[in-house]
Protein backbone atom coordinates (compact mmCIF):
# COMPACT_ATOMS: atom_id res chain seq x y z
CA UNK A 1 0.00 0.00 0.00
CA UNK A 2 1.18 3.51 -0.76
CA UNK A 3 2.28 5.62 2.19
CA UNK A 4 0.02 8.31 0.85
CA UNK A 5 -2.92 5.92 0.88
CA UNK A 6 -2.29 5.00 4.51
CA UNK A 7 -2.18 8.71 5.26
CA UNK A 8 -5.40 9.36 3.37
CA UNK A 9 -7.26 6.55 5.14
CA UNK A 10 -6.01 7.73 8.49
CA UNK A 11 -7.21 11.26 7.84
CA UNK A 12 -10.47 10.25 6.25
CA UNK A 13 -11.47 8.45 9.42
CA UNK A 14 -10.00 11.07 11.70
CA UNK A 15 -12.18 13.67 10.00
CA UNK A 16 -15.28 11.52 10.24
CA UNK A 17 -14.66 10.99 13.92
CA UNK A 18 -14.04 14.70 14.36
CA UNK A 19 -17.30 15.59 12.63
CA UNK A 20 -19.14 13.31 15.03
CA UNK A 21 -17.35 14.66 18.08
CA UNK A 22 -18.08 18.25 17.10
CA UNK A 23 -21.72 17.60 16.38
CA UNK A 24 -22.02 15.88 19.75
CA UNK A 25 -20.56 18.94 21.44
CA UNK A 26 -23.02 21.21 19.64
CA UNK A 27 -25.89 19.12 20.92
CA UNK A 28 -24.46 19.06 24.40
CA UNK A 29 -24.13 22.82 24.34
CA UNK A 30 -27.67 23.32 23.22
CA UNK A 31 -28.98 20.91 25.76
CA UNK A 32 -27.23 22.70 28.58
CA UNK A 33 -28.42 26.07 27.36
CA UNK A 34 -31.96 24.75 27.53
CA UNK A 35 -31.64 23.51 31.06
CA UNK A 36 -30.02 26.63 32.46
CA UNK A 37 -31.60 29.97 33.05
CA UNK A 38 -28.58 32.23 33.40
CA UNK A 39 -26.30 33.51 30.67
CA UNK A 40 -25.39 30.67 28.40
CA UNK A 41 -22.67 32.53 26.53
CA UNK A 42 -20.07 31.52 29.08
CA UNK A 43 -21.13 27.94 28.60
CA UNK A 44 -20.64 28.25 24.83
CA UNK A 45 -17.18 29.58 25.46
CA UNK A 46 -16.47 26.46 27.39
CA UNK A 47 -17.96 24.28 24.66
CA UNK A 48 -15.82 25.98 22.05
CA UNK A 49 -12.82 25.43 24.23
CA UNK A 50 -13.66 21.76 24.64
CA UNK A 51 -13.87 21.43 20.89
CA UNK A 52 -10.46 23.08 20.60
CA UNK A 53 -12.01 25.90 18.59
CA UNK A 54 -12.03 28.83 21.00
CA UNK A 55 -8.79 30.35 19.75
CA UNK A 56 -9.74 30.22 16.11
CA UNK A 57 -13.19 31.53 16.94
CA UNK A 58 -11.82 34.50 18.84
CA UNK A 59 -9.49 35.24 15.97
CA UNK A 60 -12.54 35.54 13.75
CA UNK A 61 -13.61 38.59 15.77
CA UNK A 62 -17.12 37.43 16.43
CA UNK A 63 -18.80 37.74 19.78
CA UNK A 64 -19.49 34.54 21.60
CA UNK A 65 -23.21 34.09 21.25
CA UNK A 66 -25.13 30.89 20.99
CA UNK A 67 -25.90 31.38 17.30
CA UNK A 68 -22.39 32.38 16.37
CA UNK A 69 -20.87 29.47 18.27
CA UNK A 70 -23.22 26.93 16.72
CA UNK A 71 -22.60 28.26 13.27
CA UNK A 72 -18.86 28.27 13.81
CA UNK A 73 -18.90 24.66 14.95
CA UNK A 74 -21.28 23.41 12.32
CA UNK A 75 -20.70 25.27 9.11
CA UNK A 76 -17.85 27.73 9.16
CA UNK A 77 -15.34 27.21 6.40
CA UNK A 78 -12.90 29.36 8.30
CA UNK A 79 -12.97 26.72 11.02
CA UNK A 80 -10.86 23.76 9.91
CA UNK A 81 -12.68 21.46 12.33
CA UNK A 82 -16.30 22.46 11.77
CA UNK A 83 -18.65 19.62 10.98
CA UNK A 84 -18.88 20.72 7.37
CA UNK A 85 -15.15 21.15 6.78
CA UNK A 86 -14.46 17.86 8.58
CA UNK A 87 -16.89 15.98 6.36
CA UNK A 88 -15.45 17.69 3.31
CA UNK A 89 -12.00 16.70 4.53
CA UNK A 90 -13.12 13.11 4.98
CA UNK A 91 -14.58 13.01 1.51
CA UNK A 92 -11.52 14.69 -0.02
CA UNK A 93 -9.33 12.01 1.53
CA UNK A 94 -11.76 9.33 0.45
CA UNK A 95 -11.37 10.52 -3.14
CA UNK A 96 -7.63 10.31 -2.68
CA UNK A 97 -7.77 6.72 -1.46
CA UNK A 98 -10.75 5.65 -3.49
CA UNK A 99 -9.02 2.59 -4.84
CA UNK A 100 -8.57 1.33 -1.27
CA UNK A 101 -12.24 1.65 -0.35
CA UNK A 102 -15.11 -0.64 -1.18
CA UNK A 103 -17.81 0.74 -3.38
CA UNK A 104 -20.18 0.79 -0.41
CA UNK A 105 -17.84 2.81 1.77
CA UNK A 106 -17.22 5.31 -1.00
CA UNK A 107 -20.91 5.72 -1.65
CA UNK A 108 -21.60 6.12 2.04
CA UNK A 109 -18.99 8.82 2.48
CA UNK A 110 -20.04 10.56 -0.72
CA UNK A 111 -23.66 10.40 0.41
CA UNK A 112 -22.65 11.77 3.82
CA UNK A 113 -20.94 14.66 2.08
CA UNK A 114 -23.91 15.39 -0.15
CA UNK A 115 -26.26 15.37 2.84
CA UNK A 116 -23.98 17.59 4.90
CA UNK A 117 -23.67 20.09 2.05
CA UNK A 118 -27.41 20.16 1.74
CA UNK A 119 -28.48 20.42 5.38
CA UNK A 120 -25.65 22.79 6.26
CA UNK A 121 -26.08 25.03 3.24
CA UNK A 122 -27.79 27.64 5.43
CA UNK A 123 -27.66 28.59 9.09
CA UNK A 124 -29.37 25.92 11.15
CA UNK A 125 -32.14 27.28 13.33
CA UNK A 126 -32.49 26.03 16.88
CA UNK A 127 -35.64 24.14 16.11
CA UNK A 128 -34.03 22.21 13.25
CA UNK A 129 -30.85 21.44 15.11
CA UNK A 130 -31.79 18.01 16.50
CA UNK A 131 -33.06 16.86 13.11
CA UNK A 132 -30.00 18.09 11.24
CA UNK A 133 -27.61 16.59 13.74
CA UNK A 134 -29.52 13.36 13.61
CA UNK A 135 -29.24 13.19 9.84
CA UNK A 136 -25.53 13.80 9.91
CA UNK A 137 -24.97 11.24 12.63
CA UNK A 138 -26.93 8.70 10.65
CA UNK A 139 -24.77 9.38 7.63
CA UNK A 140 -21.49 9.02 9.47
CA UNK A 141 -22.84 5.87 11.11
CA UNK A 142 -23.57 4.53 7.65
CA UNK A 143 -19.93 5.02 6.69
CA UNK A 144 -18.88 3.19 9.83
CA UNK A 145 -21.33 0.42 9.11
CA UNK A 146 -20.17 0.03 5.53
CA UNK A 147 -16.61 -0.02 6.80
CA UNK A 148 -17.34 -2.81 9.24
CA UNK A 149 -19.52 -4.74 6.88
CA UNK A 150 -17.56 -4.60 3.65
CA UNK A 151 -13.88 -3.87 4.22
CA UNK A 152 -11.24 -6.58 4.35
CA UNK A 153 -9.46 -6.79 7.70
CA UNK A 154 -6.12 -5.93 6.16
CA UNK A 155 -3.70 -3.02 6.43
CA UNK A 156 -6.24 -0.68 4.82
CA UNK A 157 -8.73 -1.36 7.60
CA UNK A 158 -6.11 -1.01 10.29
CA UNK A 159 -4.95 2.41 9.12
CA UNK A 160 -8.58 3.52 8.99
CA UNK A 161 -9.10 2.34 12.55
CA UNK A 162 -5.91 3.94 13.81
CA UNK A 163 -7.20 7.27 12.48
CA UNK A 164 -10.54 6.75 14.18
CA UNK A 165 -9.11 5.92 17.58
CA UNK A 166 -6.36 8.51 17.60
CA UNK A 167 -8.92 11.21 16.90
CA UNK A 168 -11.28 9.81 19.48
CA UNK A 169 -8.60 9.54 22.16
CA UNK A 170 -7.57 13.07 21.35
CA UNK A 171 -11.16 14.32 21.70
CA UNK A 172 -11.75 12.62 25.01
CA UNK A 173 -8.42 13.77 26.39
CA UNK A 174 -9.19 17.34 25.31
CA UNK A 175 -12.57 17.33 27.02
CA UNK A 176 -10.86 16.10 30.17
CA UNK A 177 -8.15 18.70 29.78
CA UNK A 178 -10.69 21.54 29.66
CA UNK A 179 -13.04 20.20 32.31
CA UNK A 180 -10.59 18.52 34.66
CA UNK A 181 -11.25 20.99 37.48
CA UNK A 182 -14.84 19.85 37.96
CA UNK A 183 -13.55 16.34 38.47
CA UNK A 184 -11.09 17.26 41.20
CA UNK A 185 -12.03 15.83 44.61
CA UNK A 186 -11.21 19.16 46.28
CA UNK A 187 -14.09 21.01 44.67
CA UNK A 188 -16.49 18.20 45.17
CA UNK A 189 -19.66 19.44 46.75
CA UNK A 190 -22.13 16.65 46.49
CA UNK A 191 -25.54 17.55 45.31
CA UNK A 192 -24.66 20.99 44.01
CA UNK A 193 -26.71 21.48 40.88
CA UNK A 194 -23.87 23.39 39.21
CA UNK A 195 -21.58 20.41 39.39
CA UNK A 196 -24.27 18.05 38.34
CA UNK A 197 -24.67 20.06 35.16
CA UNK A 198 -20.93 20.08 34.58
CA UNK A 199 -20.66 16.35 35.05
CA UNK A 200 -23.56 15.79 32.79
CA UNK A 201 -21.92 17.97 30.17
CA UNK A 202 -18.85 15.82 30.26
CA UNK A 203 -20.76 12.57 29.96
CA UNK A 204 -23.02 13.90 27.24
CA UNK A 205 -20.10 15.17 25.19
CA UNK A 206 -18.81 11.61 24.94
CA UNK A 207 -22.28 10.01 24.63
CA UNK A 208 -21.74 8.20 27.88
CA UNK A 209 -24.64 9.08 30.17
CA UNK A 210 -26.36 5.79 29.61
CA UNK A 211 -23.19 3.78 29.91
CA UNK A 212 -22.25 5.53 33.07
CA UNK A 213 -25.66 4.97 34.64
CA UNK A 214 -25.50 1.34 33.68
CA UNK A 215 -22.18 1.01 35.44
CA UNK A 216 -22.47 3.33 38.41
CA UNK A 217 -26.15 4.08 38.89
CA UNK A 218 -27.62 7.53 39.14
CA UNK A 219 -25.16 9.19 41.49
CA UNK A 220 -22.44 11.22 39.90
CA UNK A 221 -19.09 10.94 41.54
CA UNK A 222 -16.19 12.77 39.93
CA UNK A 223 -13.76 9.96 40.65
CA UNK A 224 -16.08 7.51 38.95
CA UNK A 225 -16.51 9.80 35.97
CA UNK A 226 -12.76 10.25 35.60
CA UNK A 227 -12.20 6.53 35.89
CA UNK A 228 -14.93 5.83 33.38
CA UNK A 229 -13.54 8.23 30.78
CA UNK A 230 -9.91 7.40 31.29
CA UNK A 231 -9.49 3.82 32.36
CA UNK A 232 -12.64 1.84 31.59
CA UNK A 233 -11.93 -0.50 28.70
CA UNK A 234 -15.62 -1.22 28.21
CA UNK A 235 -16.35 2.40 27.41
CA UNK A 236 -15.72 2.99 23.66
CA UNK A 237 -14.58 6.58 24.10
CA UNK A 238 -12.29 6.09 27.08
CA UNK A 239 -8.59 6.69 26.66
CA UNK A 240 -7.80 3.11 27.68
CA UNK A 241 -10.21 1.72 25.11
CA UNK A 242 -8.91 3.88 22.25
CA UNK A 243 -5.25 3.33 23.01
CA UNK A 244 -5.87 -0.39 23.42
CA UNK A 245 -7.49 -0.48 20.00
CA UNK A 246 -4.60 1.41 18.41
CA UNK A 247 -2.27 -1.12 19.95
CA UNK A 248 -4.31 -3.97 18.44
CA UNK A 249 -4.24 -2.30 15.04
CA UNK A 250 -0.50 -1.69 15.18
CA UNK A 251 0.11 -5.27 16.24
CA UNK A 252 -1.92 -6.41 13.27
CA UNK A 253 0.23 -4.26 10.97
CA UNK A 254 3.36 -5.66 12.57
CA UNK A 255 2.21 -9.20 11.84
CA UNK A 256 1.23 -8.29 8.28
CA UNK A 257 4.45 -6.48 7.48
CA UNK A 258 6.79 -8.51 9.64
CA UNK A 259 8.31 -5.44 11.26
CA UNK A 260 8.29 -3.97 14.77
CA UNK A 261 8.28 -0.22 14.42
CA UNK A 262 8.87 2.44 17.04
CA UNK A 263 5.18 3.32 17.20
CA UNK A 264 4.33 -0.05 18.70
CA UNK A 265 6.80 0.56 21.50
CA UNK A 266 5.22 3.94 22.08
CA UNK A 267 1.63 2.71 22.23
CA UNK A 268 2.64 -0.08 24.59
CA UNK A 269 4.36 2.46 26.80
CA UNK A 270 1.26 4.66 26.97
CA UNK A 271 -0.96 1.75 27.74
CA UNK A 272 1.24 0.04 30.28
CA UNK A 273 2.52 3.12 32.04
CA UNK A 274 -0.59 5.34 32.05
CA UNK A 275 -3.74 3.41 31.35
CA UNK A 276 -3.32 0.27 33.39
CA UNK A 277 -3.66 1.67 36.94
CA UNK A 278 -6.38 2.83 39.28
CA UNK A 279 -7.91 6.27 39.37
CA UNK A 280 -6.58 7.12 42.83
CA UNK A 281 -3.03 6.96 41.62
CA UNK A 282 -4.00 9.24 38.77
CA UNK A 283 -5.34 11.77 41.25
CA UNK A 284 -2.21 11.35 43.33
CA UNK A 285 -0.08 12.31 40.32
CA UNK A 286 -2.30 15.29 39.66
CA UNK A 287 -5.13 14.87 37.18
CA UNK A 288 -4.24 17.84 35.03
CA UNK A 289 -0.60 16.94 34.76
CA UNK A 290 -1.57 13.38 33.94
CA UNK A 291 -3.98 14.35 31.16
CA UNK A 292 -1.54 16.73 29.59
CA UNK A 293 1.12 14.06 29.57
CA UNK A 294 -1.20 11.54 27.94
CA UNK A 295 -2.38 14.13 25.41
CA UNK A 296 1.17 14.85 24.33
CA UNK A 297 2.08 11.15 24.24
CA UNK A 298 -0.88 10.50 21.94
CA UNK A 299 0.25 13.36 19.70
CA UNK A 300 3.74 11.87 19.60
CA UNK A 301 2.31 8.45 18.77
CA UNK A 302 0.47 9.89 15.77
CA UNK A 303 3.65 11.54 14.51
CA UNK A 304 5.60 8.30 14.93
CA UNK A 305 3.02 6.33 12.96
CA UNK A 306 3.39 8.83 10.12
CA UNK A 307 7.12 8.19 10.07
CA UNK A 308 6.97 4.41 10.52
CA UNK A 309 4.57 3.94 7.64
CA UNK A 310 5.96 6.62 5.33
CA UNK A 311 2.88 8.82 5.19
CA UNK A 312 5.03 11.59 3.80
CA UNK A 313 8.30 11.69 1.95
Amino acid sequence: MLGKTANGLYWMYRYLERAEATSRLVETGQRIALTRLGSSDAEWRSILQTAGMLQSFEASDEEVTKDAAIDWMLRSRANPSSVLTSIEGARQNARLVRTALTHEVWEAVNGCYMTAREVLARKVGERDLPKVMGEIRQRTALVRGATHGTMMRNDIYNFARIGTFLERADNTARILDVKYYVLLPTVMSVGSSIDNVQWETILRSVSARGGFRMTYGNDYDPGDIASFLILDRRMPRSLAFCVGKIRDNLEHLCRTYGTTPESLARVSYIQDRYLTRDIDSVFDDGLHQYIQTVLSLIGGLGAQIEIDYRFYE
Partner: peptide, 23 residues
Protein backbone atom coordinates in the same frame (compact mmCIF):
# COMPACT_ATOMS: atom_id res chain seq x y z
CA UNK B 1 -3.29 -1.29 -9.35
CA UNK B 2 -2.03 1.66 -7.34
CA UNK B 3 -3.06 5.20 -8.17
CA UNK B 4 0.01 7.34 -7.62
CA UNK B 5 0.95 11.01 -7.76
CA UNK B 6 4.36 12.44 -8.53
CA UNK B 7 5.25 12.84 -4.88
CA UNK B 8 4.64 9.13 -4.26
CA UNK B 9 7.41 8.27 -6.71
CA UNK B 10 11.19 8.56 -6.70
CA UNK B 11 14.08 7.15 -8.60
CA UNK B 12 15.51 4.54 -6.23
CA UNK B 13 18.39 2.26 -7.20
CA UNK B 14 17.93 3.11 -10.86
CA UNK B 15 14.21 2.34 -10.94
CA UNK B 16 11.09 4.42 -10.58
CA UNK B 17 9.62 3.30 -7.28
CA UNK B 18 6.56 4.13 -5.22
CA UNK B 19 6.65 4.92 -1.52
CA UNK B 20 4.64 2.26 0.25
CA UNK B 21 4.04 1.65 3.92
CA UNK B 22 6.80 -0.96 3.65
CA UNK B 23 9.38 1.04 1.74
Amino acid sequence: VELVEGHDLSVVDGRVAMRTTQG
